[in-house]
Simulated assay, not measured.
Amino acid sequence: MSSPFHNPESVTIKNLESAFAGESMAHIKYRYFAKLCREMGDEATAKVFEDTAEQEILHAFGHADLLFPKANMTPAKALQFAIEGETYEYTEMYPSFRNAAVAEGNDAAVKEIDEQIAESKEHAQMFKAVLEKAAKRFAALAKVEERHAKHYQNTLDKIAA
């Protein structure tokens, strides 16, 4: 998940990335625990897990704000980060996890990982399509803006003459 906005060797940045991952995982884990508690009829405990999950996501957002400062971000950069992350998942991370699961004979994990590889590839392709569509849209808008600018400049030139 490294951001190009920071020195990748920075201990603080590495710590923020770890904290972001931990808080994000806690959020999902507590949502899952809430789901289990609710299925078991324990609404009160489910609510405690859900409330805590909301706090965890706010903590993760705080770390993300430092890792991906709003002043440096654009929709295109966000899409590129997403493409890079999803591509890493289906080309490196999940295939290595799959190899370990195969070696251990964990067929259920292999099946889950195969699904994740396929979904990560789909996600990367979806983000690429959005980025390409946005690039075309921005190019078209730039042409319209250029026409408007020329029109305004021509009008200004006539007034100034």
Rank of each mutant, 00 (worst) to 15 (best):
T155C: 06
E145A: 08
K133V: 02
A53R: 04
Y32W: 14
A64D: 00
H151D: 15
Y88N: 03
K143M: 06
A76Q: 15
C37Q: 09
T52A: 14
F49M: 11
G62R: 01
A19F: 04
N154W: 03
K35L: 08
A161H: 08
N15R: 13
S96K: 15
L67Y: 09
K133W: 00
H148F: 04
S2Y: 10
F20W: 12
E146H: 04
C37A: 15
I113G: 07
E86V: 03
T12C: 02
E115K: 06
N106K: 08
A108I: 06
F49W: 14
E43F: 01
I159Q: 06
N72Y: 01
K128M: 14
D51A: 10
V110C: 03
F97P: 01
K77E: 13
S18T: 09
A100S: 07
S18P: 01
P69E: 12
F61K: 12
T155W: 02
K14N: 08
S120Q: 01
K70H: 02
E9L: 10
K14W: 02
L156T: 13
A76N: 08
M93S: 07
A103W: 11
P95E: 04
P75D: 14
T91I: 08
H63M: 10
N7A: 06
N7H: 05
K35T: 08
P4H: 09
A21Y: 05
S10M: 09
H151K: 15
M126F: 11
D51N: 13
A101N: 02
A103T: 07
N7E: 11
H59F: 09
L141K: 12
G62D: 07
K47L: 14
E39V: 04
K47S: 09
K29C: 11
E56P: 06
V102A: 02
M40C: 01
F81A: 11
N7S: 05
L67I: 15
A46R: 06
A149D: 15
H151A: 15
K77A: 13
A124D: 04
A76K: 14
K150H: 12
A19P: 00
A109H: 00
C37F: 09
T52W: 05
E146K: 07
P95L: 04
N99V: 01
E86Q: 11
G62Q: 02
A139Q: 11
